[in-house]
Amino acid sequence: MATKTIVIDGPIGQYSFSKQFIRNELSGQSKNPVLIKISSLGGSVDDALNIYDQFIEHSNVTAELSAFVASSATLISLGAKTVRMNENSFYLIHKAMNWVDEWGSMNEDEIDALIAKLETQKQQLAKVTLQLAKMYVKKTGKTLDEIINLMKQQTWLTAEEAKNWGFVDEVFVPEVAVNYLENLQMVAMINSSGYPDPPRKMAFNAPLAEPRELGVEAEATVAEHVEALFDRIWNRITNKQKEVTPKNKAEMKTQFLNVNKVLTVENLESTDDGVFLNETQLEAIENRLAMDQQIIEERDTANSARDAAIADRDTANTNLLNAMDPFNAIDATIASAETPEAKVLAIRALLSKKPATQPAGNMSKGDPVSDGVEWDVINNLEHNKHVDRNS
């Protein structure tokens, strides 16, 4: 009886069931029997290979597979001393895969560089696939060609088929029977992970296919097949029963010319359910809205700058008018002058009327120089005249 049970029911990798996590769980167990319950769609090959080595080193691990077990999750089970599988479960192996994220416009040089890069990745993946296949060969006793062909098919095996292949040592009947195809979350995870759909048709009491018969539908022992449970579940997930061609497709009576211009189409079509736009059209609308928003922001910035300039001008005009008030108070002729130049002329005219005062302006060499004393007034005083007559 196992003294330690470890459950692996999620992605294998750094942020979930990592090699460090397993090492901590196995720590202190020595050679005590350990039960590993695996229900995972896989994950990191790096972590899986290390976990495989840890199971081999421990040497007393029993792997119990349930639900959908795929990819790296099958690798870690290879390190167990004994592999048991729930009769309602499924098993899948595949070639090594790598995420490819390349898109956009490219010239011929960039395409050549991309091809060379992908070719290098392809060669590396081939090495990984070969090594993984050798691990499956060691467990099953099958030939390398058989294993690689199965990995290439990327197909789900039932528990009995996995046992026939040699991946599983025994198939057990659970205390509570569970049909994992009814687990909507699990089915959705399988589809989103890029794995093939689980078996869609089930035959009652159908003989199991031998390894060499993979890809050939097993001969049913009953005359009638039922609709696959998976199809019903899938319909519930996608909220539809069958693909239906839209009816009453026609040109819209009301055309939105600006929208058509953005989408570069002459007209939009509608169905009874409404108007539908594809992703490219939605992206065109999104880009146009972003461009319009930028134009609005630039306009608002320009308007703010204009308003600030107007405010500065009004302040300058107010200051100028305030500066003219002391001059306007001197005489009505100055106050009535409309421009600063006219006010200067009015002031000059007033100054020219004062005795012994020369009007302001440019002076030539022949212009008299005034010392500020009104000599004509002084000389015309009576006592000065008397002095002048007697002198």
Score class of each variant (00 low, 15 high):
residue 216 V to Q: 13
residue 216 V to L: 09
residue 217 E to F: 15
residue 218 A to P: 01
residue 218 A to R: 10
residue 218 A to L: 02
residue 219 E to F: 08
residue 219 E to L: 07
residue 220 A to R: 14
residue 222 V to F: 10
residue 223 A to H: 10
residue 223 A to N: 09
residue 224 E to N: 11
residue 224 E to M: 08
residue 227 E to R: 07
residue 227 E to K: 08
residue 227 E to I: 15
residue 228 A to K: 13
residue 228 A to E: 09
residue 229 L to A: 06
residue 230 F to K: 05
residue 232 R to Q: 12
residue 234 W to S: 03
residue 234 W to C: 00
residue 235 N to M: 07
residue 236 R to P: 03
residue 236 R to W: 02
residue 237 I to S: 03
residue 238 T to C: 09
residue 238 T to S: 13
residue 238 T to A: 09
residue 240 K to E: 14
residue 241 Q to K: 13
residue 242 K to F: 15
residue 243 E to P: 01
residue 243 E to H: 14
residue 244 V to K: 11
residue 246 P to I: 06
residue 246 P to T: 09
residue 246 P to F: 05
residue 246 P to A: 07
residue 247 K to N: 15
residue 248 N to K: 14
residue 249 K to S: 04
residue 250 A to R: 13
residue 251 E to K: 15
residue 252 M to D: 13
residue 252 M to V: 06
residue 252 M to Q: 09
residue 253 K to Y: 11
residue 253 K to P: 02
residue 254 T to Y: 12
residue 254 T to N: 11
residue 254 T to D: 02
residue 255 Q to W: 11
residue 255 Q to Y: 12
residue 255 Q to D: 05
residue 259 V to P: 14
residue 259 V to C: 12
residue 259 V to W: 02
residue 260 N to L: 06
residue 260 N to W: 04
residue 260 N to D: 06
residue 261 K to C: 00
residue 262 V to N: 10
residue 263 L to M: 02
residue 263 L to W: 03
residue 265 V to Y: 00
residue 265 V to W: 02
residue 266 E to H: 01
residue 267 N to D: 03
residue 267 N to M: 10
residue 267 N to C: 04
residue 268 L to A: 01
residue 270 S to G: 06
residue 270 S to P: 01
residue 271 T to V: 00
residue 272 D to E: 12
residue 273 D to E: 10
residue 274 G to I: 00
residue 275 V to Y: 05
residue 275 V to T: 10
residue 276 F to P: 03
residue 277 L to G: 03
residue 279 E to N: 08
residue 282 L to K: 15
residue 283 E to M: 14
residue 283 E to F: 01
residue 284 A to W: 02
residue 284 A to P: 01
residue 284 A to E: 06
residue 284 A to V: 00
residue 285 I to E: 04
residue 285 I to V: 09
residue 285 I to G: 14
residue 285 I to H: 13
residue 288 R to E: 12
residue 289 L to M: 04
residue 289 L to G: 01
residue 290 A to L: 03
residue 290 A to K: 15
residue 290 A to C: 04
residue 291 M to N: 10
residue 292 D to S: 08
residue 292 D to E: 07
residue 293 Q to I: 01
residue 293 Q to C: 05
residue 293 Q to Y: 02
residue 293 Q to V: 00
residue 294 Q to S: 14
residue 297 E to N: 07
residue 297 E to L: 02
residue 297 E to V: 01
residue 301 T to D: 07
residue 302 A to C: 04
residue 303 N to V: 10
residue 303 N to K: 08
residue 303 N to H: 02
residue 304 S to D: 00
